[in-house]
Amino acid sequence: MNFINIIKALLFIVLALVSAAYIVACYPVADKTNHAGISEERATELRKEFTGPHHLLTTADGATLFLRRWNPDRVPHGKIAILILHGITAYSGPYAMAGIPFAEHGYTTFGLDYRGHGLSSGNRGDTPGKERWIKDMAETVAYIKDLGFSEVVVLGHSLGVAAAFSVANAVPNEIAGLIMLSGAYEGREGVSKPPSFLELTRLYVSSVLRPSYQVYQYYREGMTVTEDSLFNFRYTPRFLLMLDAKKLRLPAEMNIPVLVGIGDEDELFTVEKVRELYDLIPGDKKEFLVMKNATHANIPRESWLQIVDWLDRTYTVK
């Protein structure tokens, strides 16, 4: 075989591999959730129609982030604000379960919709990358401080725990405290089936060929799928692969108040695994809370009031 024929054979093999990879990436999969989400355009329309207390933050790269707000019913606790970072598939709206009791007890509370989620702009379930995702949250903290709040306590739930770790590392001197709920480095055994070889191949091939396409569907057996169209159950490869949550740690020299909590009926994480995360948090200003009758996503008012008590003891009791 002469040199020209070798080159042709190699080109044919490369073309066949690329074609096969593209077929794997684009091969349709069954919709397991039957959830009707929204487009970025519809999110923009709904954002314009929203009349409740909120702020619109324009990021350094021109995106619009939606920041929901719960205002205190009585004299607020000085310059303290709570910033809620939501879990995967969610957005700020369902966190009224926290925002309302916090506001009732004097804490101005904000809930951020990540880019590509809820009423924020951006391709659904997507991010330009880890750095931009973290900058969005850091810019949100700065925005809240510019509103006149000198102390920002970040509350992360589920995926929001990884978000809280990330923003605390990015702007450690701007965070007055952390509340980390329903998150750990390892999940409960047997909850989710490990992805098949084909699913992993599809995910990683898509991360190269079409990183902004919602190739992954978030689903597990027994999961309740809400009809709320602002939830998002489809994600892009670059969102899912942007960070390794198991490697997240707070700076060793960081010694701010931290509350770590887990529901005693959480379906995704065990109390023991969450305590392992707690044990790795530096400093001597940390507390651990087991919330009674709380599942992963449904945390009762009584638990939020326990968190209010922690806030009172930590920030307002002299």
Results as ranks from 00 to 15, higher is better:
95 Y>K: 03
41 E>Y: 03
144 I>M: 04
155 L>A: 03
159 L>G: 02
55 H>P: 01
8 K>C: 13
219 Y>C: 05
124 R>P: 14
259 L>G: 10
178 L>S: 06
148 G>D: 04
94 P>C: 07
233 F>H: 01
176 A>G: 05
50 F>I: 01
7 I>C: 02
235 Y>Q: 05
199 E>T: 12
95 Y>I: 14
155 L>S: 06
9 A>N: 13
240 L>D: 13
249 R>C: 06
166 S>H: 11
171 V>I: 15
146 D>V: 08
283 G>F: 07
219 Y>W: 11
315 Y>G: 04
313 R>W: 15
175 I>N: 11
191 V>G: 11
262 I>G: 09
271 V>W: 02
295 T>Q: 07
17 L>H: 02
194 P>R: 06
76 P>Y: 06
286 K>N: 09
111 G>L: 02
122 G>N: 01
111 G>A: 01
257 P>N: 06
135 K>A: 05
124 R>I: 00
59 T>H: 13
8 K>D: 09
297 A>M: 09
174 E>R: 02
101 P>Y: 10
267 E>D: 11
213 Y>E: 07
218 Y>E: 09
128 P>K: 05
82 I>T: 11
87 G>C: 10
145 K>M: 07
15 L>E: 02
143 Y>G: 08
102 F>Q: 03
241 L>H: 08
281 I>M: 04
112 L>Q: 10
293 N>L: 01
279 D>R: 08
3 F>L: 05
215 V>N: 07
101 P>S: 13
236 T>V: 03
205 V>L: 13
6 I>S: 09
4 I>R: 14
258 V>D: 14
145 K>V: 10
84 I>N: 05
239 F>G: 03
261 G>N: 04
139 E>S: 03
201 T>A: 14
14 V>Q: 02
289 L>P: 00
270 T>F: 15
221 E>H: 11
132 R>W: 15
174 E>W: 01
132 R>F: 13
94 P>M: 12
287 E>M: 12
32 K>R: 04
257 P>A: 06
180 M>K: 03
83 L>H: 10
147 L>G: 02
158 S>P: 14
42 R>S: 03
255 N>K: 03
168 A>G: 04
107 Y>V: 13
128 P>E: 06
250 L>Q: 07
97 M>P: 00
237 P>K: 04
312 D>N: 12
41 E>G: 11
131 E>S: 12
92 S>E: 15
197 F>R: 01
302 E>I: 13
204 Y>H: 13
222 G>W: 07
151 E>V: 00
69 R>P: 02
170 A>R: 11
237 P>T: 07
172 P>I: 08
227 E>D: 14
246 K>G: 09
112 L>P: 11
277 L>T: 12
9 A>G: 12
231 F>G: 00
43 A>H: 03
109 T>E: 03
119 L>M: 07
291 M>Q: 08
203 L>C: 08
152 V>A: 05
76 P>F: 06
243 L>Q: 03
